[in-house]
Amino acid sequence: MKTLTAQMASDGGPWRLYVVVYGESKWPSVWWEPSAVPTGAQRREALASLGYEVVPGAEWSWIEDSKEYGDDRTPVVLIAAVDVRERDGGAA
Rank of each mutant, 00 (worst) to 15 (best):
A9N: 15
D65W: 09
A48H: 10
V54Q: 03
V55D: 10
P38W: 13
I63A: 10
W27Q: 14
V20Q: 04
S66A: 11
Q7Y: 07
V37Y: 00
W32K: 00
Y69N: 11
W31S: 09
P34E: 12
P14L: 10
G13R: 07
D72H: 12
G89A: 02
G90I: 14
M1Y: 12
S49F: 10
G90A: 13
Y22C: 08
Y18I: 00
T3K: 05
W31F: 11
W60V: 02
A41W: 05
W15P: 07
P38C: 03
E64R: 09
A46G: 01
T39D: 12
A91F: 07
G12C: 12
I79N: 10
A36T: 10
R16Q: 11
R43A: 01
P34C: 14
M8R: 02
Q7P: 09
L50I: 00
D72T: 13
Y69W: 02
T74M: 02
Y52V: 07
T3I: 14
A36E: 12
V21M: 12
Y22R: 11
K2H: 14
V84M: 02
G57E: 02
W31C: 01
S66I: 09
A9H: 11
E59N: 15
L4Q: 10
L17S: 02
Y69D: 15
G90Q: 04
D83L: 05
D71W: 13
A9T: 12
M1W: 04
R87L: 10
A9G: 02
R44S: 09
Q7M: 09
S25T: 05
T5D: 08
A80F: 03
G13A: 10
P56M: 06
A80Q: 09
E64S: 15
W15N: 08
L4A: 12
T3Y: 08
G40R: 07
I63S: 10
Y18S: 14
E68G: 07
G13E: 12
L78R: 08
D65V: 00
E33F: 15
E68Q: 05
M8I: 03
A9L: 15
A92Y: 14
I79P: 00
T39H: 13
A80Y: 04
G12R: 09
A48Y: 14
W60C: 08
E64M: 05
T3G: 05
S29G: 08
R85Q: 09
E24V: 10
V82T: 05
K67S: 14
Q7H: 14
Y18K: 12
G40N: 03
